[in-house]
Amino acid sequence: MNGGHMYWGFAALIGFGLLAPVAGIYPTFLMKCWCFALFACAFNLLLGYTGLLSFGHAAFLSVAAYVAGHTIRNLGFGPEWGILAGTLSAGVLGYVFGSLAIRRAGIYFAMITLALAQMLYFVWLQMKFTGGEDGLQGVPRGMLFGLIDLSDNTNLYYLVFAIFLAGFFLIHRVIHSPFGQVLQAIRENEPRAISLGYDVDRYKLVVFVLSAALSGLAGATKTLVFQLASLTDAHWHMSGEVVLMTLLGGLGTVFGPVVGAFVIIGLQNQLADKVGSWVQVIMGIIFVICVLVFRRGIVGELGRLLKRPL
């Protein structure tokens, strides 16, 4: 199954990532894309490979963003420790949310995650350290390991790309491990997985925590790039956006979420000056077209043409 074409895909991805800033694409834009690509990949792990639709993933993005921002700015953590703290807090939150949410399936699962995420949104709005609706700004980028100056865009770019790749390959490993095969079995037929003797709830919880932590990694990295964390990260729009990225790119494909993230962020970036908040409407139309015309997403349809899973 895991044929040579996959390696071509990886090579293309790494080549693009290494050369894009040299080729003159604006690095801050690319960094944003990589952060969201990681976020979408983490989400895809849950929806695409386990069949769990979480509608509250913004919660994990935001908790990590705020924790990373606060620890770096106010507690003087180095960037690597800030990112670690953010990722861990997202994992812990994922454990709490996951333990509650996996007791139900389908639409109820989605609603529970949405409700919990909305609760967290209002917590962020009221808390002192998040700065409420003003957000948390002025996070210093600092020195990585005390050695590499991250205020230099090129240095930061390659750090962000490295973080993305690490997350991406971790997800790839998980999917192709025996653990990942069980996840896919749960997605295809949960009662059968149970009857085969798998403790399904345990698997679900572990993958939920993993997905939450990786979303957190994306959120914490994003804080470092933009030097701020804001309520936008916690808003349910964000939870919706990541669903859109994943579906547009191709649900349950390895490269799909990456493509989806680049398309959505690219469109938002291009259109922001021209149409402003109409971006939301355009995103909605794209979503409708995607669902009606190419349900497998960009990469999914491409994979079907090539008769190979991508």
Binding site: F226, Q227, L228, T232
Partner: peptide
């Protein structure tokens, strides 16, 4: 769009 991250990005 009244969003801090969009503004800082731009």
């Amino acid at each position: 769009q009244n969003k801090g991250d969009v503004a800082s990005n731009k």
